[in-house]
Each structure stands twice: as C-alpha cells, then as structure tokens.
Design a protein around this nucleic acid. Sequence first.
DNA 1: CTACGTGCAAATGGTTTGCACATAC
DNA 2: GTATGTGCAAACCATTTGCACGTAG
Lengths: 134, 134
Amino acid sequence: MLSEEDRFKNFLTARKLKFTAERQAVLDRVFATHKHFEADELLVDLRHNDLKISKATIYRTLSLLVKSGLLREVHYEHVHGCEHHDHMVCNKCGKIIEFIDNRIEELQIEVCKKNKFQAEYHRLQIQGLCEDCC
Amino acid sequence: MLSEEDRFKNFLTARKLKFTAERQAVLDRVFATHKHFEADELLVDLRHNDLKISKATIYRTLSLLVKSGLLREVHYEHVHGCEHHDHMVCNKCGKIIEFIDNRIEELQIEVCKKNKFQAEYHRLQIQGLCEDCC
DNA sequence: CTACGTGCAAATGGTTTGCACATAC
DNA sequence: GTATGTGCAAACCATTTGCACGTAG
C-alpha cells in the first residue's frame, strides 16, 4: 500500500503540479498525528520548526490534500447515536448501510478490557463501494 | 439509554436554559442524518420545511449542542492511514491508544461480503477514559 | 413577571484571491 | 525558459455579538 506521500506525489504528477518544500512540510505535519486539526494549528506548528510558510500556502495545500482524497473537510459530527449502529458508506453514491454485529461488539469489549480502557462510545465506519456502484 | 432529545433537555434544564421550538428544530435536523454537515446546510434544510429561523440562532444552538457533548466540532480529518490501526481516544487527556485485532478485521470482511459491499477503507474509534483518567 | 431566546444588522476573524516575484522541472 | 508556486495584502464570507423585542417557565 502506498504511503500518504506517494499518493500525494502521484496526484500532483497526474495534474502536472509540483511537489515543493512547502507542500512536503504541510503533508508531514498533517500526517504526523491522528487527530483532527485546524489550519491555524498547522501554521503555529510549522513556524515553531523555523519554517517560513504563509497562511495562503497552507490553505492552498490543504485544498489540494482534500482534492487528492487524503484529507476530508468536515465541520460538525455527532458524538453519539443513542441506539448504536456501525456504518458502511458508499464513496460513490453516498448510500449508508447500517449494521450491527454482536461478535464485533464483544471483541471491542475484550480489547478495551485488555487495555484497561473504559469505553463510553465507539464508532466503526467502513468506506467503499456499494453493490450498485461496484 | 437516553435519546439525544432527552440528553439535550437535561443539559438545558441543568443550566436553566429553555427548550424552544428553534432548538427542537435544529436538534431534529442534526440527528435526522448520520452525515457530517455544515451550518449553511441546516439553514437551507430548515427553511425548506417552512421554518423561520435565523442563522444566528442556528449557530447559537450548534454551540450549545457542542457544549452538551452531543456534537463535536472538527475541521479536517485524515481519510487513510496507509498502515492500518484502530484507535481508542481518551476523552479526558486526549491520549490515543492504537490497536489492531485480526478477529475484528476478519469479521468486518465477513460483514462486507454479506452486504455485497466492496470496502476500500475502514475506521474504528473507541472513545472513553484511559487507565490514568478513570 | 422575569430571565432567557430570537432576529437583525454590524463587527469580527478565518479563508480566498489577485498580483508580482520565485522556483521546480 | 515556462508553467506553476509563493508571499503579501486586500477582498470575501462564515461566524459572532450587541441590542430591542418576543416568549417559555
């Protein structure tokens, strides 16, 4: 499987766009953590590491990462559903298939116990193509 | 387990805030779907259903939903990690525990097959309290 | 009846864009 | 050498806020 960097380079090359030091820096920073983030945090982080990069370039690079499919731009998301489902989301038509598999639920409980983690909520989302869009 | 509406009412009551028709409308709309959304989309949706509601009220209500813990505000999130882990995220200290359980992976493959769904990616995130924060 | 909520319009601040110079290929 | 990228500052637009009137409890 390709790394994020390779996937981004492929995307850029396909569109005759260039892989610059600024784009590298943003990419590295974005994928250095697993957390959600804001554009401002990136600016602060990058400046900390003595990099000169403008806000405009950060926004332009984030936009490219979204277009390349490496990043998703969202705003609000639910924290809970009171009744719990897991989801499959079709990347083409957007259809959502809800499912629940008790064996998966059980295994999650087991994994939490093993890690001494007290779960309050979980979310499993599988992305791909549904039957109609394959 | 309480419904979103009950949880929101509890939150409001505890702070001596009121449950108005506008707040009900936003709540209903927000939890009518499982998707990420933007404030603007809500405005359009609500106006479609003949509701008169101002942008300001929508923003104020979204802010309350975030404070109540029913909603999370994010901006960018990764679409893939090239190496795959699942995550436990501590709601208190933010610590992330990565794990992978092959039995869970297997069951996901099985569920996809059952639903004729061609998976490209999945993400499992468990939220709760870590050992140190219990 | 009173404290809280709403709509409106103005203020704010994050994001985008036009332009001149810089650089990857 | 040329097309693409960058920084800067101005423009734009989403979000927040102050205020006067409305309403839930």
